[in-house]
């Protein structure tokens, strides 16, 4: 079943050539779809367009069949709770002035009246925070800390906890492991896969790291100069009929 359908999406910044053009793809419920490409290929711009924090020029975005591309910020609000995001730099993704427990419940406090949660329950603030920290395998003692007292991997787990707290249908992961060391990278990737299965989430996993992509995703899209040049099932990554650019990416690993 299609969760997110994107059709001919284009975006041009004020001057110059389009950053992304004619992006078309479907994301199915429950899957992890990867988007691979080198830096500057437009991956993050696509993510921001899908999150509607960047204006789009042309194209269609629909979530569960409802068109999002024309909606104003106010009309968008009921859909916002279905899409969450995790960004590359966990240090910038957490407000340095807020304790972990205060940052974690932002989405929940915003949407609590409209949520219908299957996995999490929110009896009290403290219990909710502990429950979320446990879900991402962090000690509950971190609740009272500030972000700068945590390691990079711990911070990224906190942002993941915040993203899953309202059990969204889709999480856009924009290079979630790029700023982590190899060991925390592996741990975070495994955590993400477990969470997806347990909470019935879908991911759009954006990365330049083919190894990471190969580990977590079922389908892979390859992006070059703002266009999707190749799209295939994960097990066909090494097949002969791959696009020349995909082969080039593979050969660098």
């Amino acid at each position: 079943m299609t969760l997110l359908a994107v059709k001919e999406l284009s975006k041009t910044y004020r001057q110059g050539s389009p950053v992304i053009s004619n992006i078309t793809f479907d994301l199915n419920k429950g899957e992890c779809l990867a988007l691979v490409g080198e830096s500057g290929s437009g991956k993050s711009t696509l993510a921001r367009c899908l999150l509607r924090i960047e204006q789009i020029d042309r194209g269609k975005i629909s979530l569960n069949g409802s068109a999002l591309e024309q909606l104003s910020e106010r009309q968008l609000k009921p859909f916002r709770k279905n899409i969450q995001a995790v960004f590359q730099n966990p240090a910038a993704s957490l407000n340095p002035k807020l304790k972990i427990k205060d940052a974690l419940l932002d989405p929940y406090e915003q949407y609590k009246s409209e949520l219908n949660l299957a996995h999490f329950s929110y009896p009290s603030k403290e219990a909710s925070v502990n429950q979320l920290l446990e879900a991402v395998e962090l000690p509950t003692s971190l609740a009272d800390r500030y972000p700068h007292e945590l390691s990079g991997g711990q911070r990224q787990r906190v942002t993941i906890a915040r993203a899953i707290s309202i059990e969204p249908e889709l999480i856009i992961l924009d290079e979630p492991t790029a700023s982590l060391d190899v060991i925390s990278q592996d741990a975070v990737l495994r955590l993400l896969t477990d969470l997806r299965k347990n909470l019935n989430l879908s991911y759009l996993f954006i990365s330049h790291d083919l190894a990471a992509v190969n580990q977590v995703s079922q389908r892979i899209m390859v992006m070059k100069d703002g266009q999707i040049v190749d799209q295939f099932e994960q097990e066909h990554l090494l097949a002969e009929d791959r696009h020349a650019y995909t082969k080039e990416l593979v050969s660098t690993f």
Binding site: K77, A85, A92, N95, K97, D106, Q110, Y111
Partner: peptide, 26 residues
């Protein structure tokens, strides 16, 4: 411009709430 403000926007916090909760402490 930092990501935590973008995330607050994605989470549907109004401009007033973002200013009060996320920017004021700074």
């Amino acid at each position: 411009q930092k990501e935590y403000i973008l995330i607050a926007r994605i989470n549907g916090l109004s401009a007033g709430k973002i200013m009060k909760k996320h920017l004021f402490p700074h």
